[in-house]
Amino acid sequence: MTLLELQNVRKYFPGPKHFLEETQYVRAVDHVDLTIVEGENLGLVGESGSGKTTLGRLIMKLHKADSGAIILNGKDISKLSDNEFRPLRKNVQMVFQDPYSSLDPRFTVHGLLAEADQLSQEKKDRNARLEKAIQAVGLDISCLKRYPHEFSGGERQRIAIARCLVMNPKLLILDEAVSSLDVLIQEQVLQLLKSLQQQYPVTYLFISHNLRVVRKICHKIAVMYRGKIVELAASDEILRNPLHPYTKELLTAAIDYKSVDKPYNEPIGENSRLIDNGNGHFVIN
């Protein structure tokens, strides 16, 4: 079942305004089509500036899309007002990159989770739900009484994940959620995310710049470059048989820690579209 569908989504940011000159636009998200199927984790890979973070925020309606349709669970949310969308927000949640600033330091863990809970549920059984959530991410119930500054980076990300789980989202967007953690902790969090999918009916959109990390939990990978998706295929397929030169560049860097002689720098034509190369492997033309 299709969980999320992006159709021709566009978001341009205006550059600095100069007197008597036409404003240049940064094409953060440039006519993107994307589909996320329930149960199939999608990885969105690209360097900083590729637009992947903006895309995630557009889906969360933290930015307003300039044009295009964002269809969540069959409903086009791009046209909804803030008030209309509010009750639907619980269906898609996000874990942010910086574990040190995504939790309000003045709240206890209990307070942080309760805040999320009261937006989607009645007060009855709240404590039980919060305890279930904090244990699901591998932390002890006693953590509920503590404050964020008492935890390490990896533990804070777990708390952030728990906060999202409390709302029972169908789609969880992880925006570089493990990029600032060290490799062993990264691994732990990734394993946690994998195991959570046994307990909760949630699908991940995993945004990252590192293919090596993404392939660990994603079934499909989309590569983003300058606001457009340039390649889309199953994880194994992309790693084994990258077709687009930019994908090859990312792969070499992530796996072999090597750089290519000429970094990919071509502009992408206005009318480029993803073409199916057979067995679901799409490349832009």
């Binding site: 969360m60 509010r86 009750p87 927000r89 619980k90 942010f96 995504s102 937006l119 709302m167």
Partner: peptide
């Protein structure tokens, strides 16, 4: 601009609630 304010918006808290509970206390 802090992430926890972004997270509060993402959860669906109203503007007034965000100002009173998250921003002003800081």
């Amino acid at each position: 601009e802090r992430d926890f304010v972004l997270a509060a918006r993402a959860m669906g808290l109203s503007d007034m609630a965000i100002i009173i509970k998250h921003i002003l206390p800081h």
